[in-house]
């Protein structure tokens, strides 16, 4: 059996890469993808943590996360489309109007 700590390390790395992507990339689509990476890392922790004592609960929680991620993507992509219609760009830096 692979120790759970290994899964946690992989998950931490995935989450870290997600943060790096979210902060460095300016393309809103890629930023969304980075959020998905972070959600995936969370799922991995749920399942790995639940492996030994209540495996079914880990899967159930991960299912909730996937459902929320699907909802987030639906709204997020609709926003990106609306943004593109308005600005002809999906760069996050091009949307600064609210800034004084």
């Amino acid at each position: 059996m692979v120790p759970q700590a290994w899964y946690l390390i992989v998950s931490a790395l995935l989450f870290g890469l997600g943060i790096v992507g979210f902060v460095t990339r300016r393309n809103s689509l890629v930023m969304f993808m980075s959020v998905e990476l972070m959600l995936n890392a969370a799922n991995l922790v749920f399942v790995a943590g639940a492996r030994d004592h209540f495996p079914a609960r880990g899967t159930a929680c991960a299912l909730f996360v996937i459902a929320v991620a699907a909802a987030e993507v639906a709204v997020g992509l609709a926003m990106v489309l609306a943004l593109f219609r308005l600005k002809k760009s999906v760069q996050a830096d091009d949307v600064r109007e609210l800034r004084a």
């Binding site: 059996m1 759970q4 700590a5 492996r51 030994d52 209540f54 079914a56 899967t59 299912l63």
Partner: peptide
Amino acid sequence: LRAAATPDHAAPDASAGNVADLL
């Protein structure tokens, strides 16, 4: 966590039926 954990074999496994029960 570093030591190999002792799995609880009595726990319901992550099959569809068990997950659905939980949900």
